[in-house]
Amino acid sequence: MKNKKSLILVILLTCCFGAVLYAVKEYNRKPESLETIKEDFAISAGQLIGQYSQEQKTADQKFLGKTILVKGKINSIDITDKKNITVVLGSDGEPSSIRCSIDTLYMDKLPALKEQDSVHLRGVCTGYIPDDMGLGADIILNRCYLTEKIK
């Protein structure tokens, strides 16, 4: 009888310890790195722009918050400061572009890039800013990693 009680106590304590350990781990969990994660969608820059230009709501339902591997040509590179680099995919004269904000943890590893380079970038889609300020429309990808650079 005494042995049974002790066993139950040990099981209960183990469960409690496990629960506390899980809670602490979950609380301290960092956002997952996109360097190794598998993307939800792989799509060309033109196709992604096309889907957003056609019907924003449907595109948002499909892509918002999802990890996307986007393939396209660099139109420009915006460097606001050392920790804020954005690679813009699209073409001159087009009203829409894809703005890929590079992950700060990846900045040091980012190879030299220039306009017209063909690249594959993986990032999280945070949505679409329509052209209601006269600046062109943009699809925004955050925490981007360069997965491939094609000459």
Binding site: P31, T126, G127, I129, M133, D138, N142
Partner: peptide, 28 residues
């Protein structure tokens, strides 16, 4: 870090737009 903002210095019109999913925390 992906805020779109425009200022018309002549009229003083000032606008910014921000996508909520672009807000990043240290903890997931």
């Amino acid at each position: 870090k992906t805020v779109t903002c425009v200022l018309d210095t002549k009229t003083g019109n000032f606008q910014f737009a921000v996508l909520m999913k672009g807000f990043e925390f240290e903890r997931a």
